[in-house]
Structures are given as structure tokens and as C-alpha cells.
């Protein structure tokens, strides 16, 4: 499953896309994010399978515009830390 967290505004689409099928629950991305917006949690989207996946924290879902700002193209053109940290390649960004 692809979970899209983010927003669209006049300047473009800003989404973090988490592929729960690829995510192995290793949690390497959690400390990689300097804004601490990611966390490991029970996979609520597939309640019957008791697996842990990474999601954007509830409290940060409405703040992606601000929390992710340091990693946006205007601020840093380098590779995104969460994407690089993810070995299975479960994290992607729309920017």
C-alpha cells in the first residue's frame, strides 16, 4: 500500500510516499529524519497482519509544510536523508 502524507498548494505537490509493502519495519529512517516526523507503528491499514511499519506521526501530518521545509529543493538539493536511510526503498517524495 502507498500512503501519501502531505499537501498540495499553489507552488506544487509535496507528498511523502511510504510503500508499506516494501517497508520491513527496520526503523532506520526514524533517527535519520532531523525533524523527527517518522515513527514505527502497528500497521493500522492492514489490521489483520500484525506488522510494524513506518508512518508520519499524527501530530506532524498537518505540519509537513514546515517540518519538511529544510529538505525541500529550495533549501537543500542533496539527497533526502529519509530516502537514503531506507534500504528497501520504501520512501519516496514527490519533490
Amino acid at each position: 500500500m502507498i500512503a501519501n502524507f502531505g499537501y498540495t498548494d499553489g507552488s506544487g505537490e509535496y507528498y511523502i510516499m511510504l510503500d508499506t509493502d516494501k517497508c520491513n519495519g527496520c526503523g532506520a529512517c526514524v533517527p535519520a529524519c532531523r525533524a523527527h516526523i517518522l515513527e514505527l507503528r502497528d500497521n493500522e491499514y492492514a489490521p489483520l497482519a500484525a506488522t510494524k511499519i513506518v508512518v508520519v506521526k499524527d501530530a506532524n501530518r498537518k505540519r509537513i509544510k514546515y517540518d519538511c521545509a529544510p529538505c525541500k529543493p529550495a533549501s537543500a538539493a542533496r539527497a533526502l536523508r529519509c530516502v537514503t536511510a531506507c534500504k528497501p526503498g520504501a520512501i519516496a517524495h514527490s519533490w
Binding site: 500500500m1 502507498i2 500512503a3 501519501n4 502524507f5 499537501y7 501530518r61 498537518k62
Partner: peptide, 11 residues
């Protein structure tokens, strides 16, 4: 009825 993708706009 299993979710394969979602997008939420709760701004």
C-alpha cells in the same frame, strides 16, 4: 476492501 493507496488532505 483492502487499502492499496491513500491520500489524505486534512489541512
Amino acid at each position: 476492501g483492502k487499502v492499496t493507496a491513500f491520500v489524505m488532505n486534512d489541512k
